[in-house]
Design a protein around this nucleic acid. Structure first.
Lengths: 225, 225
DNA sequence: ACAAAAGTGTTTGTAATACACCCATGA
DNA sequence: TCATGGGTGTATTACAAACACTTTTGT
């Protein structure tokens, strides 16, 4: 039996949401293979760090992003997925508020950018497949968990949440029913602040009630929109 | 930067169901570490095989089981999870009909056995945690997919399905409502055969309509019992 | 005839859906 | 005053839940 020589990487599909757009964080690779092609950020796991630590480190190094929600997505291990040899990659799935920090490219990345998930460039390795699975997971999650906390600003008008959902689901939703349901979940605290978006009636601001929010998540609420 | 030296294994949590009991396939380890302790079957991934091939090979080698349903569960990568050094394990989740083959121990396994999931022995490594996650997944899956096909005989009386669900969910279910719902899904074909279990009225046999079954799974039906 | 499991409908409550107008502000 | 987005209630429908007796067989 030949000695095992498999390399391990982690990759992170990071979604952000801003003004009606869902975007994904990608880097342009500085080195071969796939030099100057876009890819999901990630890299080799060090011997003494956990997988999560590896993802967070790579993200920070390559893009400047500090993630606040991270979960494991899937492990990709087809022998031919990397031209350098056998590389198994554990893919993660993350959510961030893009406007809370500046992205910058460094180490292995020549460039970093947010891409709208409907306007993706060609991707390296099997990253297209990874991204597709991540998008499905995102859409799946949002139908049985009240996501949003991780993607929206601390305080937000209700219409932001509404837009987030209808963007994510790719279809219109009934505003009245949606509001009824969310309010009924008791996860939002209504604030006594208003914000105006140029024209139209100013909107009341809301924020997530964290205690209730994480409790609901733990209970694994089912939540049909 | 030191060279990466991480080993990769796969582990398989295999569930079987027979006569009102859900059991898990375990092996007794023949070698150190954890010699003579029970563990989830699994082993090192070879350089040129896919992860799924590795799982199926290890299962076959160690236990004689040929699996007919397999999905990836989670990847465990804590640096300290294996005393031999850094070992990352990709855990799989499988379902079989225990009575369709004979289990036998070989290669790394000194013994193989089915354990009722309520009477588990002490386990090696972090296998207890892996098993707990697998059990949760099994319970989760059954509430949104019509599982059963993978665990029951080809032809079965309706009460078998009923018992499977109530065992898996750990609570009684309303027979009438359950039957209504399942029949309404149209996944079962009723046969013109009866089977008698010693005493009581003989039961009609059913079988899964595979086309409809896999179609429903793909649609990701939600299915509250 | 009785024990044991199979088979079968109806009612009630609850949650999802469909649907349209008024309100508050800035230009 | 008009354009723009914010905010709200009711009626209908569909599905989940609760509930108990009859049927068919073996002993």
């Amino acid at each position: 039996m030949s000695k095992q020589s498999i390399k391990l990487t982690v990759d992170a599909v990071v979604f952000g949401y801003e003004e009606g757009n869902i975007s994904v964080l990608l880097i342009k690779r500085k080195y071969e293979p796939f030099k100057n092609k876009w890819a999901i950020p990630g890299g080799f796991v060090l011997n003494d760090e956990s997988l999560e630590e590896a993802v967070e480190r790579e993200l920070q190094e390559e893009t400047g992003v500090k993630i606040n929600y991270l979960e494991q997505l899937y492990t990709f291990g087809e022998p031919s997925r990397d031209p350098r040899g056998r590389v198994v990659s554990i893919a993660y799935f993350g959510l961030v508020r893009p406007n809370t920090f500046k992205i910058f490219a460094s180490t292995d990345a020549a460039e970093v950018a947010w891409f709208n998930i409907n306007e993706l460039p060609q991707l390296s390795f099997d990253h297209k497949e990874i991204l597709e699975i991540a998008i499905k997971r995102l859409q799946g999650k949002i139908t049985y968990e009240p996501l949003g906390f991780e993607l929206l600003d601390k305080k937000f008008p209700f219409s932001d949440l509404e837009k987030l959902y209808s963007t994510l689901l790719g279809r219109g939703i009934d505003r009245r029913n949606f509001r009824k349901k969310i309010i009924g979940l008791n996860v939002l605290d209504e604030l006594n602040e208003k914000v105006s978006k140029g024209s139209g009636r100013p909107a009341n601001l809301f924020q997530f009630n964290q205690k209730r929010y994480f409790q609901l998540k733990k209970e694994g609420i089912i939540f049909e929109i």
